[in-house]
């Protein structure tokens, strides 16, 4: 029997380019887990969350930085996304505690992450994003689920000029094309 070694491959081959002062870079090292709150267990999940992370569960469309590079997005009243840096993942014990109260599914293979940053990033995003991206409406560390060029995207504002865009991995090339085109049209 052949000894096969599986190798991790990124969806966009580690794409990295700067176009018209907008840096577009694929983020490879991440693990995404969806945490769904079971119906009628909202209070139990909120108290478990507080016990585990010593912080309140974030409000809808807000995020919470739980450790270096690891963030939790609250996407809906009953849904959270745990985004971890592959090198600094949560301990198995913490993860098992979360699994006790939330329904969890690994979605790392389902999402492709693009980091867009630079002085022109807002001008680029306003061409494809239907959200109001003004600082007073969309603050730093806010997160939204929306559609860009008909594709479903999660947008996270890391800093005033840096965003993470999560799109479905199956259509990641189409989404990259939309982002590149928007950069070129500036």
């Amino acid at each position: 029997m052949h000894k096969l070694k599986l190798q991790k491959e990124s969806f966009l081959g580690g794409f990295s380019k700067t176009i018209n002062n907008v840096s577009v870079k694929e983020i490879i090292d991440h693990r995404i887990t969806s945490l769904a709150i079971p119906l009628t267990s909202e209070k139990k999940c909120a108290s478990e969350f507080k016990k585990i992370f010593k912080k309140l569960m974030p409000e809808i469309e807000k995020s919470l930085s739980i450790s270096q590079g690891n963030v939790i997005f609250r996407l809906a009243s009953d849904l959270l996304f745990l985004c971890e840096n592959s090198n600094k993942k949560l301990s198995k014990a913490t993860f098992d505690l979360l699994k006790r109260s939330f329904y969890s599914t690994d979605q790392s293979g389902g999402w492709c992450c693009l980091q867009v940053s630079g002085n022109n990033v807002l001008n680029m995003l306003e061409r494809i994003c239907p959200l109001d991206l003004a600082e007073e409406r969309f603050k730093t560390l806010d997160v939204r689920r929306t559609s860009m060029e008909h594709l479903g995207v999660i947008i996270f504002k890391k800093s005033p000029k840096e965003f993470l865009l999560y799109s479905a991995s199956s259509s990641s090339k189409s989404f990259l094309h939309a982002v590149e085109t928007s950069c070129k049209n500036l």
């Binding site: 809808i60 996407l75 809906a76 009243s77 849904l79 939204r144 689920r145 929306t146 479903g152």
Partner: peptide, 11 residues
């Protein structure tokens, strides 16, 4: 009328 927030929080 019913509207479904498909590209949002699925409400």
């Amino acid at each position: 009328e019913l509207w479904y927030h498909e590209q949002g929080d699925r409400s």
